[in-house]
Design a protein around this nucleic acid. Structure first.
Length: 273
DNA sequence: AAGCCCGCCAACCGCATTCGC
DNA sequence: GGCGAATGCGGTTGGCGGGCT
């Protein structure tokens, strides 16, 4: 892939890796382990920058990598995790064994985004009036992506960020709204939940979240979970320690309010099966 | 057969964060 | 604590190949 030759000018090679380069890298990592990518590059004589070496290993040469043939279950999991996390590909990949962030990102951009846009197109028109009624003051629907909403400060939040997956057999009268300052921060302004937004989880139990159960049997546990978020003790990465495979087996989502606006109508298209 | 279009995906780029001194 | 290097991450680019005209 012929790209600009800045690296070539510095004596570094760019473009597609050869089988020989791959073998050199594999042999080196087998012997010395991962990490120190710049050192690997120097030691092996590979005329590649450290970043390129790392990428090649992590995305293609690692022995535990699955390539291609993304199953329906994996696809569904990707969609659900993206709903929850936005474009945090590495976090999503971390929940799907054998898949890399690059592969998931490519799959999303090339396949899933279009697919969901098609599916949402009809859904959006059906929900248009509903959306208008539910839009919080100061927020406007993003013009180019049905999954995005602008927050009152102009930053983009993914509505997907506002769902987590569990059971929706929660009766209206049982809801406890817990407003909390989100500890989830963002490194750019076009994805995820903006720190400082007030978020309410419509209450279900943590037990429900973990086990996909169908009752409000353990409010205390769930409240503990909320408390953790409240006090900044549980960040997104800790949140991800929950078993998403189990979460995604359950049939619906927690409804989360942002600025008083329920996001219930942004559930996954296939979330109700 | 040739040319064009478009989707896929490997790899690069820039920026942010972490690490080591 | 400051600074440079290394690493990690997400966005983007661009070559390749298949399908269509």
């Amino acid at each position: 892939m012929g790209r600009s030759s800045r690296f070539e000018k510095e004596g570094l090679k760019k473009g597609v890796w050869t089988a020989r380069e791959d073998q050199i890298l594999i042999d080196y990592v087998k012997k010395h382990g991962e990490g120190k990518w710049g050192k690997i590059s120097r030691d092996t004589g590979l005329k590649r920058c450290g970043k390129s070496v790392r990428l090649r290993w992590l995305n293609y040469l690692r022995p535990d990598i699955k390539r291609g043939n993304i199953s329906e279950a994996e696809e569904e999991l990707i969609i659900r995790l993206h709903k929850l996390l936005g474009n945090r590909w590495s976090l999503i990949a971390g929940r799907i064994p054998g898949r890399t962030d690059n592969e998931i990102k490519n799959y999303w951009n090339s396949t899933l985004r279009r697919k969901l846009q098609q599916e949402n197109h009809s859904e959006v028109s059906r929900n248009e009036m509903k959306e208008d009624l539910l839009s919080p003051a100061g927020s406007v629907a993003a013009e180019d992506d049905p999954h995005l909403t602008r927050n009152s400060e102009g930053g983009m939040i993914t509505q997907s960020s506002l769902c987590c997956f569990t059971n929706n057999n929660v009766k209206e009268e049982d809801h406890q709204h817990h407003h909390l300052e989100s500890s989830i921060t963002t490194t750019n302004n076009n994805t995820t939940l903006i720190s400082g937004d007030t978020v309410g989880f419509e209450a279900v139990t943590k037990t429900d979240v973990e086990l996909g159960g169908d009752g409000l049997s353990d409010d205390v546990t769930w409240n503990d979970f909320i408390m953790d978020l409240n006090e900044g003790q549980l960040d997104i990465s800790e949140f991800l320690q929950t078993d998403f495979l189990k979460l995604c087996d359950s049939e619906s989502s927690i409804n989360i309010d942002v600025g008083g606006c329920s996001t219930n109508n942004h559930e996954l298209p296939n979330n109700s099966d």
